[in-house]
Amino acid sequence: MKKRYFLEAGAVLTGAALLSQFINPRAEIVASSNTEFEVTKSEEEWSKVLTKEQFYVLRKHGTERAFTSSLDKEYGEGSYVCAACELPLFKSDTKFNSGTGWPSFFKPIEGAIATTVDRSLFMTRTEVHCRRCGGHLGHVFADGPAPTGQRYCMNGVSLKFIPA
């Protein structure tokens, strides 16, 4: 009986986590993202200049599947810019292999990003945005390498790599 209860509870928690994006759509962040930034566009304008996946991640605060971005294994010299407005965000010498399946960096370019509190999925995280257009990039965690101890875990579709 205990095993059945455990499985049922696990199924309920998993379902709730998957549905939390609909329970807590974070409309306040999406709505403000078109009014507080240097680069502003309507939802329709963004959908015309971004791919479907970029729009989902950058404008709807989605997450791409792990290990699907070619940028995860990109280690050439250059910089990573916002896929929506091309603001330089990270330099290649701050990139590291976190093993998470997403491009990870230990330090952004000064003044390139903004952060907000993300309380979706029944947890509190720090969400990272492009400071110029408000596009959702990913999250930052305090488990990265020296010298900062930070892991900026970014969605590859939110970035473009520009070789040096």
Results as ranks from 00 to 15, higher is better:
121 L>M: 14
148 T>L: 03
119 R>M: 12
106 F>T: 04
68 T>S: 11
81 V>L: 08
84 A>C: 10
101 G>P: 13
139 H>T: 01
107 K>Y: 07
66 A>V: 06
136 H>R: 09
12 V>L: 15
53 E>Y: 01
115 T>M: 02
101 G>N: 11
79 S>G: 06
127 E>G: 14
68 T>K: 03
140 V>L: 05
65 R>Y: 11
48 K>L: 07
130 C>T: 07
18 L>M: 13
35 T>A: 10
64 E>D: 02
95 K>Q: 09
43 E>N: 04
129 H>V: 01
14 T>C: 11
35 T>E: 15
109 I>W: 12
127 E>W: 06
21 Q>E: 13
129 H>R: 15
32 S>L: 13
81 V>M: 01
103 P>N: 06
43 E>Q: 13
68 T>A: 08
19 L>T: 02
74 E>N: 13
46 W>V: 03
132 R>E: 04
22 F>V: 10
62 G>K: 00
67 F>Y: 08
33 S>C: 05
131 R>I: 15
31 A>E: 14
64 E>W: 03
85 C>S: 09
55 F>A: 09
98 S>H: 13
23 I>M: 09
13 L>R: 05
62 G>E: 02
98 S>F: 06
89 L>A: 07
56 Y>S: 10
94 T>A: 03
127 E>C: 07
40 T>A: 09
11 A>S: 10
15 G>F: 07
12 V>I: 15
103 P>E: 05
75 Y>W: 15
97 N>A: 15
66 A>H: 13
105 F>W: 08
14 T>W: 14
138 G>L: 03
95 K>I: 11
25 P>R: 00
15 G>H: 04
